[in-house]
Design a protein around this nucleic acid. Structure first.
Lengths: 361, 361
DNA sequence: TTGAAAGCGCTAACAG
DNA sequence: CTGTTAGCGCTTTCAA
């Protein structure tokens, strides 16, 4: 508080003032010691042998002046910023909120500052990433690719650069990622429908170019296989995760013969679009068709009908990602991590039910 | 690309490599000039008189080495980071997405880097803001208060500190804010219902402690007044903006006698909760009751029925806020700005209709 | 147990 | 037209 009081006289005409900041040398002066002692006391240098008396004096003065280390000075000296950036295609999803919380908490533990950037700005505006890093503003990146960037594009960006950890998606040629257990999650969603007696189960999936979409599709196929059900290619759509894409997928799916009685949508937002499309087409949910979504978020409680979902551990993905990144920056070998804990969890609401009578296997 | 090639030999055992960065003096060496010339060429110093030939040589070398200025050095020298932080209660809303886009674009224009922070982390975790600024990581803040922090708490945090601009909300004792034209927006929403013939119109508002809630309520009252309609206190609820609060508000509103035929909800998320509550109570929307929401977002297309909303210029608020902040940092007097352009816009969907027959005025 | 000093990369005042 | 130099705040080696 004290250090933030200000010299408002300098800014006549403005009631608004600017802050004062304490420096090491100011502390040194007031404590009657040298800057190097102050530095070592404040950074807790274990090799420092000092009288308790001086140590306390330094700490006291620092506290009185409300000292915070200037990061430009420190970063310049140490050649690292102690900041990380989380780059994401879209910030505006509750899913991202979880990821962000995990990343923020882990960053705090590791004593890093976390910035957030958006990948739409980044792939467009050429080299924002390189600028951020080149400027030394951040030491590394947690990168959530958007679904429409190709593996090649991603790899050329990320290369074999230790400062990147990929999140939710990975790319064949490169280590350093943390992802969800997509196959278990999608399998759980599919098994839920199977358990209700459905046999003709459709999949509204992501783009086939994405590893993430492929894993979810694999979970779906696995569940069908283990239940001894036939996987029909004409019940699978791979258009992407947006509500609009799901709408299109549903429209074509409703015309399939025989019509599916249940559909797993590989993303909540898509499922919301699916619900809208089905309502418009006069298909009752869950009477005529059951819908289960991969991912959970609060709107699922407010759709009509409320959406049954599979909740995935996004928080942990965020946390693991920054821990993994920090480890990489320290020189550890890059890892590819799948988050299994907590496991996918079915959140039962009202969009799923047994198939219409006479339609079960 | 070249400068990012790396000395992978240093990291035996790891395929992943670290980058190399060019410095001014390296450029100077290769171009055969002094660092100061390089610096002045690259920063575009207008007072610099130099031969075109040397200028081009410098630029060429800089390009070859893929030079980006190290911000630690620059920040240390200039005593400012050229970074701004946008602090928000919740990142996971499409509304915030717009605000963020505006802020990002404006920051880019002003040549600032924009960080995002979350205010829940901040009010809890004591002095994250002060740390960010004290460390010199950012020069200023765009601060979106959460609805539950009091004016006093806010003022004590922000004091008369030129490095803050408040956004969407303001506080009596302090200049430096940019807000929406809440009264026009809420008025427009209310007028829409009036135009349809409604006379008993309820308001599901925000907390009465917030200036923002009061402005929206004022717009509502104004519309009623201008239409010569009585404003009934028993049709106003002030619980907050979450779906849960709106649900509670709706439940008590449905019991009011005479029951309102229309309701304006001062926030989309609340309106989504309201729709759910009305459905559960067996009140048909819009047959028995019309619902119009303040703010627009994509889910409004996917609720049942699709939600009529008033779209507000959030992008511009974000953009104005950073421009205003940058001006303040340059020493301009703090301003209080209301964004009038573009004006609030009614987005007609299906949650509003004339009141049930015989219920009109 | 403490201090002096160098240097991280940059800008800007001043000197040639 | 271009170079020299000081110094921003910090950490760290070396010397005392």
């Amino acid at each position: 508080m004290v250090a933030w009081a200000a010299s408002s006289a300098l800014l006549a005409g403005t009631r608004i003032t600017l802050p004062l900041v304490a420096t090491l040398s100011e502390i040194a002066r007031q404590a009657g010691v040298s800057v190097s002692v102050v530095s070592r006391v404040l950074t807790g240098d274990p090799t420092l042998r000092t009288r308790d008396e001086t140590r306390h004096r330094v700490l006291q003065v620092a506290k009185d002046l409300n000292y915070t280390a200037n990061y430009a000075g420190r970063a310049l000296r140490l050649a690292r910023s102690k900041a990380l950036a989380l780059i994401t295609p879209g910030v505006s999803s509750p899913l991202f909120d979880d990821l962000l919380s995990g990343a923020t908490d882990a960053a705090e533990e590791e004593d890093y500052t976390l910035l957030i950037g958006r990948s739409d700005r980044i792939t467009q505006g050429s080299d924002t990433l390189r600028r951020l890093a080149g400027e030394g503003r951040v030491d590394g990146f947690v990168l959530q690719r958007s679904d429409d960037v190709s593996d090649q594009a991603l790899e050329s960006l990320v290369a074999n650069d230790a400062r990147f950890v990929l999140v939710t998606s990975r790319t064949p040629g490169r280590r350093g990622s943390v992802i969800l257990d997509d196959v278990s999650g999608a399998k759980l969603a599919t098994e839920h429908l199977i358990g209700l007696g459905h046999t003709r189960i459709a999949l509204v999936g992501g783009l086939p170019s994405s590893d993430l979409g492929r894993r979810r599709e694999h979970g779906y196929a696995l569940a069908l296989h283990e239940a001894g059900l036939r996987r029909r290619e004409n019940l699978v759509r791979r258009l992407g995760y947006s509500p609009e894409m799901a709408t299109a997928a549903i429209e074509s799916l409703v015309g399939a013969v025989p019509r599916p009685t249940g559909v797993v949508v590989a993303n909540v937002n898509g499922a919301i679009g699916a619900l809208t499309a089905l309502r418009r087409l006069g298909v009752d949910v869950p009477g005529d068709m059951s819908v289960v979504a991969y991912h959970d978020e609060w709107v699922a409680d407010h759709t009509w009908p409320p959406l049954t979902t599979v909740k995935m551990p996004y928080y942990e993905v965020g946390a693991q990602a920054v821990r993994s990144l920090v480890a990489q920056l320290r020189g550890s070998r890059a890892e590819d991590i799948v988050v299994h804990d907590p496991p996918p969890k079915l959140v039962l609401r009202s969009s799923t039910a047994p198939p219409p009578s006479g339609q079960s296997a």
